[in-house]
């Protein structure tokens, strides 16, 4: 039997120097503090449990590395997924909790690089994903197919966005070992491929949630949920 070893998926300690790690640690703290204050308005008795479960779901799906090239794999980051399901502020907190649990309990991602990992995946990925989803909101609200297509594109762009966060951090204070141009080309190229996988998983998940509970999809808030209308009609008919 092949023993599956899931090891490091995020930036380890030592990949950027301490000043750079400290700067992005501060970026992460400021971003998350803002997220805590903004998340309140998006959380109620119904969406708070949803957000907790979405956090657990992202942790689970992040464990599933899928092959992208011989000898290379990718896994979900989840930025666009959480942005579309629970909104960007709550979503940033979801991903940050996943990253903290991974770093503290599973030794996945360094402690000094927790700030860079949060910046890339909880801030950049979530807000790039949210930006793309909002730009395509008209399409997303028109039909289920539109929503699924929006989720795919948002996830693809968000994944490449997160990878460019690493390139930026490497440019500022990365450890030696590779030329910046090479890092940029490889990171963006590989994450365009990973982004396709991220897009498929995100689109499938959003499509499934929207089919069952469209009222729990943040991006669809304010639109009449077809399921609710049908139930109401059945209830008052006959």
């Amino acid at each position: 039997m092949v023993v599956v070893r899931i090891t490091a998926m995020h930036m380890s300690d030592g990949l950027v120097d301490i000043p750079t790690a400290a700067v992005f640690g501060a970026v992460a703290v400021i971003g998350l503090a803002l997220a805590v204050t903004r998340a309140r308005r998006d959380l109620d008795d119904r969406t708070a449990p949803m957000a907790g479960l979405v956090t657990a779901f992202v942790f689970a799906v992040q464990m599933i590395n899928f092959p992208i090239l011989p000898g290379a794999s990718g896994h979900l980051l989840g930025g666009a997924l959480v942005a579309i399901l629970v909104g960007p502020w709550v979503g940033a907190l979801c991903i940050a909790i996943v990253l903290a649990v991974q770093a503290l309990l599973f030794a996945d991602g360094g402690l000094t690089t927790l700030g860079t990992n949060i910046t890339n995946m909880a801030l950049i990925s979530v807000f790039v994903g949210y930006g793309v989803a909002m730009a395509l909101r008209g399409l997303a609200r028109r039909s289920r197919a539109g929503l699924v297509a929006t989720a795919f594109v948002a996830a693809l762009v968000a994944t490449v966005g997160a990878s460019l966060g690493f390139v930026l951090e490497y440019a500022i204070g990365g450890a030696a070992g590779a030329a910046l141009g090479t890092v940029f080309a490889l990171m963006s190229g590989l994450h365009a491929l990973i982004g396709v996988g991220e897009g498929v998983i995100t689109a499938a998940t959003i499509g499934a949630v929207a089919a069952i509970r469209p009222d729990l999809v943040y991006l669809l808030r304010g639109t009449a949920a077809p399921l609710e209308l049908r139930t109401a009609t059945e209830g008052t008919g006959a």
Binding site: T7, A8, N65, A72, S73, L190
Partner: peptide
């Protein structure tokens, strides 16, 4: 059933 190949970042590193 997850792939144990290095992920994107690890591959670059």
């Amino acid at each position: 059933f997850a792939s144990s190949a290095p992920d994107g970042l690890d591959t670059v590193a």
